[in-house]
Amino acid sequence: MTVCTSPWPAGVPGWADITVTELGPTQRFYGGLLGWQLSIGGPETGGYVTATVDGHVVAGIKVADVPHPAGWCVYLATDDLAQSVAQGVAAGGTVVVDPVTVLDLGRLAVLADPTGAVVGLWESGTHTGWELTEVPGAYVWAEQMSHDPVTARRFYTALFGYEQQDMSAPDFTYTSLSVGGTPAAGIGGYGPGAGDVPAAWTWYVEVEDADGIAPRVAELGGEVVSGPEDTPYGRMLLVRGPAGEVVALLQPPLEDIVA
């Protein structure tokens, strides 16, 4: 478990939020599945909703009149938003949401990388991002998957100067990106059977029992996309929420929990 109330290092995923048209289904789904408690902000925040676990913020939800399907936006921390946006554009990205200041909370922008995946950038003010990681209901990992992992890797390393570790295997392309020796995120390539699945960032939320939680997904208004299945990093399932968004749920290996 990591509790953090200071800004995350530049290049490390530090926040995720989603925009939906109705709060009720999303609240029931994540509250029932992950135990999230939701708090609705005041008018000055536009009613922005924060999800908490044990009193620590772990994600955000915005309610707006937008079309489905919705999707989770993963935000990478930055010390200098303007510079990161400029570097992202120079590396082949395009601006989806121009830099904007959000009260005293911080500043954000959203880019589309050259493979088409959308990624957020967050420069912290009073809001430093998620305060809790690596416990049930909280962030544990994030990765970008596309049909062109070479281009994706080139873009993100130009953006944040990541250290790279090739973790590929036959028919599987994957690179772990690190900041100061600490793993930050992954860049992977879709397999030959993926079809026309678009490039996207996916974040992983820790769960205690992947097999126990799987049957509840449909009961709460979602859908199991794949799994549960064993991976080198735990037992994982991919689920689709009531607004059409995808999130990965990961039960870490027992030795990691004990450690």
Results as ranks from 00 to 15, higher is better:
residue 94 T to L: 03
residue 121 L to R: 09
residue 85 V to S: 00
residue 82 A to T: 06
residue 123 E to W: 13
residue 100 V to F: 11
residue 78 T to R: 11
residue 83 Q to M: 11
residue 115 T to E: 01
residue 97 V to R: 13
residue 79 D to Q: 14
residue 102 V to D: 01
residue 102 V to C: 00
residue 82 A to G: 09
residue 114 P to T: 07
residue 121 L to W: 01
residue 84 S to M: 07
residue 82 A to K: 12
residue 86 A to H: 02
residue 91 A to N: 06
residue 102 V to Q: 00
residue 94 T to C: 01
residue 124 S to G: 09
residue 113 D to T: 11
residue 121 L to E: 10
residue 110 V to L: 07
residue 104 D to V: 14
residue 103 L to Q: 14
residue 106 G to A: 03
residue 118 V to G: 06
residue 94 T to V: 12
residue 122 W to N: 07
residue 105 L to H: 10
residue 90 A to P: 01
residue 107 R to M: 11
residue 86 A to W: 06
residue 106 G to V: 11
residue 97 V to C: 13
residue 84 S to L: 06
residue 79 D to F: 08
residue 120 G to I: 14
residue 101 T to E: 13
residue 125 G to W: 08
residue 95 V to F: 01
residue 112 A to I: 08
residue 114 P to F: 05
residue 109 A to G: 07
residue 107 R to K: 15
residue 123 E to H: 15
residue 104 D to T: 12
residue 104 D to F: 04
residue 85 V to I: 04
residue 111 L to P: 08
residue 113 D to S: 12
residue 111 L to E: 06
residue 104 D to Y: 05
residue 77 A to Q: 02
residue 113 D to W: 09
residue 117 A to Y: 06
residue 82 A to W: 04
residue 118 V to T: 15
residue 109 A to N: 08
residue 126 T to C: 11
residue 116 G to S: 05
